[in-house]
Amino acid sequence: MLKGKSLDAVQAMEKTLELLELLANCKERLSICEIADKLCLNRREVLFMLVTLETRELVRWDDVARVYRPGQTALEFAKSFRRPAPSLPAKGAGRTRSALPGKHTPRPDRRLATGAMA
Results as ranks from 00 to 15, higher is better:
40 C>E: 11
34 E>P: 00
60 R>G: 02
83 R>W: 04
22 L>H: 09
71 G>Q: 04
78 A>N: 08
80 S>F: 11
114 T>D: 13
76 E>N: 05
44 R>I: 00
49 M>R: 09
102 G>N: 06
118 A>W: 05
49 M>V: 00
36 A>M: 08
42 N>H: 10
38 K>Q: 10
114 T>S: 12
94 G>E: 08
84 P>Q: 14
111 R>H: 12
4 G>E: 07
96 T>H: 05
90 A>C: 04
31 S>E: 12
32 I>E: 07
107 R>G: 04
74 A>S: 13
21 E>T: 14
37 D>N: 13
65 A>G: 07
99 A>S: 15
36 A>F: 06
36 A>V: 05
49 M>Q: 10
67 V>S: 07
103 K>W: 03
77 F>E: 06
82 R>D: 07
111 R>Y: 07
110 R>G: 02
5 K>N: 05
65 A>R: 15
25 N>I: 10
72 Q>M: 05
47 L>A: 11
62 D>H: 03
18 E>Q: 10
21 E>V: 08
42 N>T: 02
68 Y>K: 08
56 R>W: 09
49 M>W: 00
23 L>T: 01
28 E>V: 04
37 D>H: 10
73 T>D: 01
20 L>A: 12
38 K>M: 12
2 L>W: 02
63 D>N: 11
86 P>M: 09
5 K>R: 14
2 L>H: 08
54 E>V: 03
18 E>D: 13
39 L>S: 05
117 M>F: 10
7 L>K: 14
58 L>D: 07
15 K>M: 10
13 M>D: 01
34 E>L: 03
112 L>R: 15
57 E>N: 13
44 R>V: 00
114 T>K: 15
27 K>R: 15
75 L>G: 06
70 P>N: 08
8 D>N: 11
28 E>A: 13
10 V>Y: 03
34 E>V: 07
49 M>N: 03
34 E>A: 13
41 L>W: 01
3 K>R: 12
93 A>Q: 15
52 T>W: 10
65 A>W: 06
100 L>G: 02
78 A>S: 13
35 I>T: 11
57 E>K: 07
84 P>T: 07
79 K>F: 04
43 R>I: 08
53 L>I: 07
18 E>P: 01
72 Q>H: 03
52 T>D: 14
23 L>W: 02
67 V>D: 02
26 C>M: 11
86 P>Y: 05
97 R>C: 11
111 R>F: 09
115 G>S: 08
89 P>I: 06
73 T>R: 11
38 K>D: 01
101 P>D: 10
89 P>Y: 07
117 M>T: 12
99 A>T: 10
